[in-house]
Design a protein around this nucleic acid. Structure first.
Length: 270
DNA sequence: AACACGGGCAACCGCACGAAT
DNA sequence: CATTCGTGCGGTTGCCCGTGT
């Protein structure tokens, strides 16, 4: 059963988004909410694929996005989550409100991977790189095998069993139970409360994370979050001319609780 | 100053999955 | 139950920009 393309390729614009298109999209979403992405381009007056609109919104335009480089703490959390979840970027991103899977994925590929390699850690398996050239080749030349293996051995949703995880008794842990690995994790996870939250599958860990982050501009203040976003998207201020505050911008007023809710739902949903 | 190269990031592509019909 | 549709996800690509020669 052949799938139809998500949109007719004819007349669909591709490539970088213009400020004008951004404005149109955000104006539409704020007016109508997120529903039926396929219809969005038409209704919003965009010559874009619905998919493209969704991506643009989720990865770049969402008001609750935290722009800028990942903090040290965020990076460490990503490393640790990756050790548990593998390349399930959306799951990892769900643990870092304000960050997108794409952003994390890019950051992983461009920064963290190298960092780990420098530290002598295999970014795929999270095992210390072995000296034998053949085995290191093995590990790095089977991109997903390690991860898929890990995934199969974690929960269906890829998250650790709360009770078992604390005692590092998961198979994945057993797999990674070399001294070096625990040393790495110890180094990474020096914050006990943070790690407890993590393994207990509690979203507030991110708050702890942000609180512990040295240069966090938003101290769980949603307006601060908005402000930082506005700082990064000067044009967004223009959108106020469209009457954003009139049509439901309040939906972003309680970003943190929304994020927590969303995360809770997501975990149940997946 | 000009060119080549590499890194970083935004965006696209194709597949998978779940809901709806 | 089979099929269709919409969406989400992960991998990959391509462009832009900074740096080195």
């Amino acid at each position: 059963m052949g799938r139809q393309p998500c949109c007719d390729k004819l007349g669909v614009k591709k490539g970088p988004w213009t400020a004008e298109e951004d404005k149109k999209l955000i104006n539409f979403i704020l007016t109508n909410g997120q529903c039926c992405w396929r219809a969005v381009p038409k209704l919003a007056g965009l010559r874009r694929c619905g998919k493209s609109c969704r991506l643009r919104w989720t990865n770049y335009l969402r008001p609750d996005l935290k722009r800028g480089l990942l903090t040290e703490a965020e990076e460490q959390l990503v490393i640790d989550l990756h050790a548990r979840l593998g390349n399930r970027w959306s799951k990892i991103a769900a643990r870092l409100p304000g960050r997108t899977d794409n952003e994390i994925k890019n950051h992983w590929n461009t920064h963290i991977k190298k960092k780990l390699l420098k530290m002598g850690i295999d970014p795929v398996t999270h095992q210390p790189l072995t000296k034998q050239p053949s085995s290191s080749q093995e590990t790095s030349s089977m991109p997903q095998s390690g991860n898929t293996h890990q995934l199969k051995e974690t929960d269906a949703d890829g998250l650790p069993n709360s009770s078992e995880e604390n005692s590092s008794s998961s198979p994945a842990d057993a797999e990674n139970s070399s001294g070096d690995e625990s040393l790495l994790l110890d180094t990474i996870c020096s914050d006990d409360s943070l790690m407890n939250s993590l393994w207990l599958d509690q979203t507030p860990l991110v708050d702890a994370l942000w609180d512990s982050a040295p240069k966090v501009e938003n101290t769980s203040n949603d307006m601060a979050m908005l402000t930082s976003w506005e700082d990064n998207c000067a044009w967004f201020l223009d959108c106020q001319d469209f009457g954003i505050h009139d049509f439901g911008f309040s939906c972003f007023n309680d970003i943190e609780s929304n994020a927590l809710q969303t995360l809770g739902l997501e975990e149940k949903g997946h």
